[in-house]
Design a protein around this nucleic acid. Structure first.
Length: 764
DNA sequence: TACGCCCCAGTTTTT
DNA sequence: CTGGGGCGTA
């Protein structure tokens, strides 16, 4: 490899400095992934380091997979023997081999946030802590923070001896850890915490991994917390071959314990550290980069660094002040349609917002305009009730100490095992300090259980035992199928209403497919391994750039990604930055970094939109434009309407030609333009864009006019076909203004709502 | 024991 | 407005 030719001077420096601590300050889009992959390839190809001696930590599994592929392209399949994964996955991998040394069993469960909440509530109940005195949310947050900072329950208790309230929280922390252990379970924070504990308590184990991982790389170092910092520090302590890459301007996870000091103080921790700055940006056009630089320059606590680019200035940042949140959605949809006509493809676009709740309006607008999109994040697939239920069975089969999973499914489907019975069993389990599963096995000897319940419980125990026996003889997908068959889960679903049954059983099928896919693509095909990947997936992991969809996601999820065209929406004080951040300098700075992350995702075009009026929990609110917009100098911005420009300069010049030739819903129908002239420009433009909108829908309609669904044909139970979502059944009909609102259950796309007049529906 | 109704709280952001 | 949780009734 001729590295000098492939890399710029700083990148080259970063690649060939392989020995000793190295801090790479990599600005957004400065070719950091390139540097990391060449660095690894250089280690393997030129310095003959064994791939198995390399540990590379990335932020998401997706990033890990991509990095492995890129290294593979340079060094071949032996790259498979490197460890490239997230902190969490690496730690799980280590713990699966070593955790018995901490008194856990190797088949431990991983508890997600909702399991965690259940267990915390159990602890609070046992300690007689009233939800009204201390909220579970606060306790969860505090405990999580202690773990991030490697503070043990005992330590936390002594540190807060004088503080009654904190002392209570410490008691919960103590009990919570005790229960986790007896459930043979770890929460997310434990994965890191326990690995560090393992290293600290077992010098021989530590020594083994120190020798194994001769070269350590950590990406997104600015977002590491104390425990992650300690994990990498302790492993690198003897050889000090630690290379960390990060950008203090992109630290956006302080709220979950990330400590920006880890990057700011790297040189203090390693006085001999070499520092390389990558300031040449290869991603964004000049105007976008300048906008990003000017926004972030308002932050105080940062390493000085200015991104530069050789690329042209490009287009200015496009600012649009919408009339309403709906108008904002339509604006984005229209712009996308327009650009697609110009030759862009749907996967070139990303819509980024602050909170997941904001996605809904964009989804609705995109559906109406038939723009294919992919939602990243939000309510995840694995958060669905039916999926959690089925996985709870699997977890219990794998780890019978897991009371949380047992409690979740002991009466799902209904087996006539009620709360009072469960309470008695739990009390008994506590008294003999054993898990519920063992209590159930010996239910005859539990005092106070009704005869009838004993029968049901024995049947349940038999069921679990029969499934347990199958675990090692079947693949995960077969095992899941066996769970479904033997529990009668799907049978019970049939008793719920049709729609629910449809969508839930569909999801279950998807789970089976996911298991099959897992079996085909992964080395370790055990149920344990499947549960692990399921527990540690991030929202973006499922994102596929080649799918041809517009992506919708939060700014946080967009970290590390790039798109030709980015829409930053909801740029309003109160939303972004959120009202909670306003009186807090630290949070204000974190928000600003988040804004910086958003801007720097864009390569060619950047839109920043806001709305005069929007609905937030059913209430209508009005927010002004975000401060962050004001931090971008005028000469870098172009207003598409409102301030300083009339709508005439707006590109859609032919708008006035066809007005209201369509059966619009009354919101827009009754307003005439004369009345509207009295208001400001933005409203007029908003209105015109609406019409533009309608025009494009009229166009759509012409295409499919032959079979377009009519009012009389729209009846409950009718099968229809939607241009984008395929075949579905009408499940409800409501009058909505002048139009009719249809709720449709699609065979493959779940349940959606449409306006009959607007949706591209045809009779089947 | 199971279901249904009512009330309230929630929006940061996620492994 | 929505979903979850708690409580009361059949």
């Amino acid at each position: 490899m001729n590295l000098k030719e492939l890399l710029n001077k700083e990148q080259y420096e970063a690649v060939v400095t392989t020995e000793g601590p190295l801090l790479i300050l990599a600005g957004a889009g400065s070719g950091k992934t390139r540097v990391l992959t060449y660095r690894i390839a250089h280690l393997i190809n030129d310095l003959k380091v064994y791939p198995s001696q390399i540990l590379a930590i990335t932020f998401t599994n997706k990033a890990a997979g991509e990095m492995r592929e890129r290294v593979k392209a340079l060094v071949g399949d032996e790259a498979d023997r490197m460890w490239v994964s997230t902190f969490h996955s690496s730690c799980v991998r280590i713990l699966r081999r070593e955790i018995d040394k901490l008194g856990y069993e190797k088949n431990f469960s991983i508890y997600d946030t909702s399991d965690q909440k259940t267990l915390i509530k159990q602890c609070m109940k046992e300690l007689n802590i009233n939800e009204k005195d201390i909220e579970d949310k606060e306790i969860i947050k505090k405990i999580s923070r202690q773990k991030d900072n490697l503070i043990s329950p005992e330590q936390f208790k002594t540190d807060n001896e004088k503080n009654y309230r904190m002392n209570k929280i410490a008691d919960v922390y103590l009990l919570y850890q005790k229960k986790l252990k007896s459930n043979n379970a770890l929460d997310f924070d434990d994965l890191i915490y326990k690995t560090v504990e393992l290293f600290r308590k077992n010098p021989d184990v530590l020594e083994f991994y120190r020798r194994k991982f001769e070269y350590i790389l950590v990406d997104e170092y600015q977002d590491t917390n104390k425990s992650q910092y300690e994990f990498s520090r302790i492993l690198a302590e003897s050889h000090k071959n630690i290379c960390v890459v990060g950008d203090d301007d992109q630290c956006i996870y302080e709220f979950r314990g990330a400590d920006i000091r880890n990057i700011l103080d790297f040189e203090k921790d390693y006085p001999e550290a070499k520092v390389v700055k990558l300031e040449q940006n290869y991603r964004s056009v000049g105007n976008i980069l300048d906008a990003a630089n000017s926004v972030i320059s308002n932050n105080t606590d940062r390493k000085s660094k200015v991104l530069r680019t050789d690329s042209e200035a490009g287009e200015k940042v496009k600012v649009y002040r919408a009339f309403s949140d709906i108008d904002e959605g339509n604006f984005v949809a229209n712009q996308i349609k327009r650009m697609v006509e110009e030759g862009y493809s749907n996967s070139d676009f990303a819509v980024l917002y602050r909170t997941n709740a904001q996605s809904r309006i964009f989804e609705e607008c995109f559906v109406r305009q038939s723009i294919p999109y992919k939602l990243v994040g939000g309510l995840g697939f694995y958060d669905r009730k039916e999926i959690k239920d089925i996985l709870a069975y699997l977890r219990l089969i794998v780890n019978f100490h897991d009371d949380i999973s047992l409690l979740r499914i002991i009466n799902v489907p209904k087996r006539s095992i009620g709360n009072s019975t469960i309470d008695k069993m739990q009390e008994f389990a506590n008294s003999i300090d054993d898990c519920l599963y063992n209590v159930i096995l010996d239910i005859e000897n539990v005092p106070g259980i009704a005869r009838r319940s004993i029968t049901s419980i024995s049947k349940f125990a038999e069921l679990i035992n029969s499934l347990k026996a199958k675990k090692d003889m079947m693949s995960v997908s077969e095992l899941l199928q066996a769970i479904l068959d033997e529990t009668g889960y799907v049978e019970e679903l049939k008793n719920s209403n049709e729609i629910e049954y449809q969508s839930r059983s569909e999801n279950i099928e998807q789970l089976i497919s996911a298991a099959v896919e897992f079996e085909n693509s992964s080395e370790d095909k055990s149920a344990e391994a499947f549960l692990e990947t399921v527990a540690l997936v991030a929202a973006v992991d499922s994102m596929d750039e080649k799918s041809g969809n517009v992506v919708l996601m939060t700014f946080h999820s967009a970290k590390g990604l790039e798109f030709p065209v980015v829409f930053m929406v909801g740029m309003e004080n109160g939303l972004f930055p959120s009202s909670l951040a306003f009186n807090n300098d630290k949070e204000m700075e974190e928000s600003r970094r988040l804004c910086y992350v958003g801007i720097t995702r864009a390569r060619k075009k950047l839109f920043m939109t806001s709305a005069e009026v929007r609905r937030v929990y059913g209430r209508t609110v009005g927010y002004e434009e975000s401060e962050f917009l004001n931090e971008i100098p005028k000469e870098l911005k172009e207003h598409l309407n409102g301030i300083g420009k009339s709508y005439n300069s707006y590109s859609g010049g032919q708008i006035e030609s066809k007005r209201v030739t369509y059966n619009m819903n009354n919101e827009y129908n009754n307003t005439n333009s004369i009345k509207k002239t009295n208001y400001n420009n933005s409203i007029i433009v908003a209105d015109l864009i609406k019409n533009d909108d309608v025009k494009s829908e009229v166009k759509n309609e012409v295409k499919s006019e032959v079979k377009k669904l009519t009012n009389s044909e729209a009846t409950i139970g009718r099968k229809i076909k939607h241009a984008k979502f395929g075949i579905g059944t009408i499940i409800s009909i409501n009058k909505d203004g002048r139009d009719i609102k249809l709720t449709i259950a699609f065979d493959n796309m779940g349940i959606k709502t449409f306006l009959l007049g607007l949706a591209p529906l045809e009779l089947l």
